[in-house]
């Protein structure tokens, strides 16, 4: 009974956090599924978003302007990775790792050389805060994160339906075809990575406000959580959701499911130190399953032949 009640108690928090991380997952979806690039910049740009947002709010800037600046900072991080990849011909994964590593130093500088910068909801006006997550008031973070998520999904739905967005999708799916149709592949990779990292930084900015601090390590392993959200979403809704907006919505739900499962395992007495190991294992298994399935059907085919 105590397990159930404490789990129920943790649901609003898990859902809020899940939706915030879901925005990050949508950013990962853009690179991983649309651009066909595994972009590791996100571990850094997530913390950059948090750092920029918190420092600006602490300096007295409006939280809305702060998250717009976080978006811009994330886009800039994506731009650096994209330039390393397209203009210096460094493999995408390595480009992301290089940017991510340099962002560690940059994030420390943004945060005034400290690994952690608090932004208390008592002292500053914040858009979302963990404190009110179970309140039935306008302060509750849930409505706002849901609205933000919906706005992100609708904007992306519109963008990837435009001429430019279609060209970006073609770039990710078949660069040879894209070039033959006169599409500037390199420019599109740059745009895709910028949008993706802008969203990741937005997610970081929201999470920093939500938890009341930005931390230099808050983005560590973010890529894995993002991938988990993408994959869980696909496992549950891949067969039903065909529409692009719904696919993005599935990522959001995937992140929520991830956090709910996390709560359960934590309540069951799991050591929090093992979290990252378990997350990584889950993602690895889900990434491997489609390949295993293919192997299995191939073997079956041979037997039948």
């Amino acid at each position: 009974m105590t397990f159930l009640s404490s789990f129920l108690n943790s649901i609003p928090g898990a859902v809020s956090q899940g939706i915030i991380w879901g925005i990050m997952g949508i950013g990962v979806y853009i690179t991983f599924r649309i651009m066909d690039v595994a972009d590791l910049t996100v571990d850094g740009s997530f913390a950059t978003g948090g750092a920029v947002c918190v420092m600006l709010i602490r300096a007295g800037v409006s939280p809305w302007i702060a998250i717009v600046c976080a978006l811009a900072a994330g886009a800039l991080a994506g731009l650096i990775t994209a330039l390393l990849h397209t203009k210096c011909s460094i493999p995408a994964i390595l480009s992301g790792i290089l940017t991510q590593l340099s962002l560690y130093s940059i994030n420390l500088r943004i945060m005034g050389g400290r690994a952690n910068q608090p932004v208390s909801v008592d002292k500053f006006h914040l858009l979302v805060s963990q404190r009110y997550v179970r309140d039935l008031s306008l302060n509750n973070p849930l409505p706002l994160v849901i609205l933000m998520s919906a706005a992100v999904i609708m904007t992306l739905y519109w963008f990837f339906g435009t001429e430019r967005g279609c060209a970006i999708r073609a770039t990710g799916d078949n660069p040879n075809m894209a070039k033959a149709q006169g599409i500037n592949v390199k420019n599109n990779i740059i745009i895709g990575l910028m949008i993706s990292n802008a969203l990741v930084a937005l997610s970081g900015a929201l999470l920093a406000q939500y938890q009341g601090a930005s931390d230099i390590n808050m983005g560590r392993g973010a890529i894995v959580i993002g991938l988990a959200a993408v994959i869980i979403g696909e496992v549950f809704f891949g067969k039903i959701f065909r529409n692009f907006a719904l696919k993005l919505f599935a990522v959001s739900i995937g992140a929520v499911v991830y956090y709910l499962v996390l709560q359960v395992t934590l309540q069951l007495g799991l050591n929090t130190n093992d979290l990252k190991l378990i997350s990584a294992m889950i993602v690895a298994v889900f990434l491997a399953v489609p390949y295993w399935k293919k192997l299995a059907t191939r073997k079956k085919g041979v037997k039948n032949a």
């Binding site: 435009t162 430019r164 060209a167 073609a170 799916d173 078949n174």
Partner: peptide, 22 residues
């Protein structure tokens, strides 16, 4: 592009050599 629809592929081709905007 295998993951795009026939009409989307054709629409991409119909803009060959043109600026792709919003």
């Amino acid at each position: 592009s295998a993951n795009m629809l026939i009409e989307e592929n054709l629409a991409l081709a119909n803009r060959r050599g043109q600026k792709r905007g919003l």
